[in-house]
Design a protein around this nucleic acid. Structure first.
Lengths: 221, 221
DNA sequence: CAACCAACTGAACGTTTGTTTAGCATACTG
DNA sequence: CAGTATGCTAAACAAACGTTCAGTTGGTTG
């Protein structure tokens, strides 16, 4: 498989190197000199293009957010469930992007909050729409909070891809890994794993521990 | 509420400062001088007690793993669901521990693999036992893989606690946050959120995309 | 009291860090 | 052809880094 980074602008090549390095060694742990060496340029050029190390960080964030949106759009247009070949190609290209995304989400940065917020917004809409299409039975309480928990669950798999890769023996950031793990995820989400009565009962027990609603607005169904 | 770090050994105080700093600024981003300043000692003393910065890192890992085991044991003994006051106190003490844990899991270190592996082992046992007690209906495929996905989902909430805290308006690393979010989690796990038929059907569709089993050992139910 | 040991510090060491600056080549523009 | 951006580098800079070392406390032991 051909390397994608062959025929790129030098600027883009530097950025791509940074996107690979930051998640691996952290921001402070990644030196400008290391990035320059990987990209085959002088350290000065990195700063010539991005102004500063922070500037490079911002550029990486911007690019990854942009690519995430682009990937999502493309996935929808292609039709995710119908073309496993296409989604595989997308994933192949996007592995560093996903890795960077997972890293950013763990940093608690402003970008992380933005990405998480976007996902929650989208899933919230899907929850409301899903009730019409029949995919969603009924969400509990505030749909936005329901969406946030759902997104956190999903992203957990992304952030722990290294561990899941070890557990499954397949790279979790590829289509193959997704396909291998999806049945296990769906088994849980379809309610087939846990005993429904016991879980529902536990839920009620915990709901009784809720602090008094005070003057807070209460979420309605 | 009294600070817990008042009447501690200097060595312990340094370690606790490091446990707070590492997740916030990363390992490379945290300087020995900053740790020393926070602990009110000289930088030289940090290295006197831990040999090197890496030694301090190892000591933090060890301590957090130890505390995690201790907390789990204590939670079981106290009876998690019966004494909200006790669990609250435990959480109060353990917030930095949980934060450090979440950070470590994202680094892909050896400690992260160990912790994740421990969790998976425990949940796997719970899955098998759960079938007898009725909590578990039936797990899909390999119980260890099922456990891994489950653990990743759970830890997703831990690793994204900052985002969930914002979404819920309550600190997710406290008992209050746990209680606030638990009903939403249980709503999903009890199969009340998604339409079961559609999810089960999607699962079957994806199972058909599975690569040929080749010579791999196949997981049995 | 002398000897000792662990806890602790101030000052310094050599490296590495992000960044700056002056300058070189190439290619486009008038 | 002169002029001027653009992409790029080598060399150097001050600051900050992890670490070392000699030396000072204060309490314990013989």
């Amino acid at each position: 498989m051909r390397s994608v980074t062959e025929d790129l602008t030098t600027r883009a090549r530097i950025r791509d190197v940074a996107i690979e390095r930051f998640p691996k060694d952290g921001f402070a742990g990644t030196t400008v000199r290391a990035i320059a060496k990987d990209a085959g340029v002088s350290p000065a050029l990195v700063l010539h293009h991005f102004g500063s190390k922070d500037g490079l960080h911002r550029a990486c964030d911007e690019y990854v957010v942009h690519m995430t949106i682009e990937m999502k759009r493309e996935a929808i247009e292609t039709g995710v469930h119908r073309e496993p070949g296409a989604i595989a190609a997308t994933y192949q290209l996007a592995e560093p992007i996903l890795r960077y995304l997972a890293w950013t989400l763990g940093t608690g940065s402003e970008t992380a909050a933005r990405i998480f917020g976007d996902f929650v917004g989208e899933v919230t809409a899907q929850l409301v729409e899903g009730k019409e299409h029949g995919l969603i039975n009924e969400y509990h309480g505030d749909p936005q909070k329901q969406a946030a928990v759902l997104v956190a669950m999903q992203l957990g798999g992304l952030m722990l891809h290294d561990q899941l890769t070890r557990a499954f023996g397949v790279d979790m950031l590829t289509a193959e890994g997704l396909i291998a793990s999806a049945p296990y995820t769906l088994h849980i989400l379809s309610g087939e794993l846990f005993n429904r009565e016991i879980m529902a009962q536990t839920k009620q027990t915990i709901e009784q521990l809720q602090p008094t609603p005070d003057t807070e607005q209460r979420a309605t169904r």
